[in-house]
Design a protein around this nucleic acid. Sequence first.
RNA 1: GCGGGCGUAGCUCAGUGGUAGAGCGUCACGUUGCCAACGUGAAUGUCGAGAGUUCGAAUCUCUUCGCCCGCUCCA
Length: 556
Amino acid sequence: MASHTPEHAAGNTSSKMDKLTALCRRRGFIFQSSEIYGGINGFWDYGPLGVELKRNLKDAWWQDIVRCAPPGPDGQPIDMVGLDCTIIMNRKVWEASGHASGFNDPMVDDRESKQRFRADQLFGLYAGPHTGNSAADRAAVLAAVAGGIAPIISIIASTGGEAAEVLERQGKKLFKERNVPLQISEIAAEFVLLKERGEPRLGVLAAVPIDVLRGRPLEIPSPFTQKTGVLTEPRQFNLMFQTHTGAVQDDSSMAYLRPETAQGIFANFRNVTDTSRVKIPFGIAQIGKAFRNEVTPRNFTFRSREFEQMEIEFFIHPEQAAEWYRFWRDVRFKWWQSIGLTSANLQLREHDRDELAHYAREGAGTSDIEYRFPFTAPGFGELEGVAHRTDFDLRQHAQFSGLGDKLKYFDQQRNERYFPHVIEPSAGADRGTLAILCEAYQDDPGRPSGVVMKFHPRMAPIKAAIFPLVDKDGMPEIAGNIYNDLRKTWNVEMDVKQNIGKRYARMDEAGTPYCFTVDTQTLSDQTLTVRHRDTLAQERINVAEIRNFLSKKLEP
RNA sequence: GCGGGCGUAGCUCAGUGGUAGAGCGUCACGUUGCCAACGUGAAUGUCGAGAGUUCGAAUCUCUUCGCCCGCUCCA
């Protein structure tokens, strides 16, 4: 795998992505939203081919998750029901979920270097006394941090461990920029042994408290230059879109566009259990739009401000969390492979415990199913997150709605009332579509189009094309009959214009896996040629066999 | 949001103050008949947008919008 460089590893990454976006535009997969008005940043439209592709992805998900859910760990069929809830909900939903307060990350700017970072990712190196009594020294320096002393050096990191790594790697450079006569002699996790002018001191790496940052930003050294006096106070960036319900726009009518579909499922948990006879373990699935005011939408459709999610909330008894977490993680990874993401560009990555979201920190784990996009290579970008959300959301809604224990689930078999835990596989439909496009794209100088989209037949926007070799001698009529029959079941196209090579080339760019061509021989023996997109090979089959042929090729 | 780069036909680009162009693609007709072939013809432009300078702006200036790269964010 690693032995041969993927064609979109560093080097021609941008050119592959440029070619792909050009093809998406040219062939009608994806357009920029409101293009004739100059576009709008972070919003994308799906054209005639794109809408088929994305719909195939969502339909496959719905079929494989809701209508024909996989057997569970015990081999028994899984209980799964669908849901479709509104984008705008009572705003208390977002207070309960934590989005209203937690979804806007305070950001800090370095006024001098014009760089910005998240306030909660700022770590400081704090120095305290070194008496030799390590327990007392640690307590002393931690007390000093809590008391609000300024760090001597600052670092951007998401965890203390990462801060230690940065310090280890760049320690000398950081001290040089600060121009403090300090030396590091030892780093053990977040604790650091320092020497200041030969005098030993105990250092600790700790998050810079937000209230210190807010109150005295000028005393904190910039993580970029280690200069003081350049940082701004943390500022709020609300990532949720706001709107108003009703004609009068005041504070009381303010509402949010949902930033995730999950909360609609939690808010309907009781409705579903009351009406559908599902029993734990069971899942509720939903496909729908969500909206986030991303700081910087970029990388084609990868980070859009309006996007579509395919989410499952799977409700379980807390004791079964680990088992169901592993189950869904593996099922979802295999599913992406089953629809054509078969290369080493797809990977499953288990999160480190300390990078987990607030609701998942105590859980059985979180993992990402990731794809190596041309623009992330050699890194990966997230397609789907599988998280054990514990009972966080249901408990929050129980509290905020005032329903309390009434929102608990009564388990007949266990004779027990409890808040179920939740395993959440949450996939991005637009990101999935983009990964399928990236995976399918193949330069091929050996064919007339120069490029071919090798979609899995189940995902291909056009399943087959029907061509009369010549636009005469009764061939168009035969082709027309076949077309009219096939289109009752599949999205197929007929094309009579121009020479056959041009028509094959167009279908290569659209990623159509099979082309059926009616020729002179068809007139006498009822056979026609099937041209295979991936191999360019041709075979003859009987006209009456076409339905069988396609059914077999298109089954999951 | 900050810094850097870029916006001319569907695509790739030429055009640096004086009538908006080429190739490819698209479409029509003819011809051919299994991989963008050939001939003839046609359509297609708010030169990203707005303002300014000028007798005259695709070209110079300012503003703005969008795209790409970095920081940042994330399904």
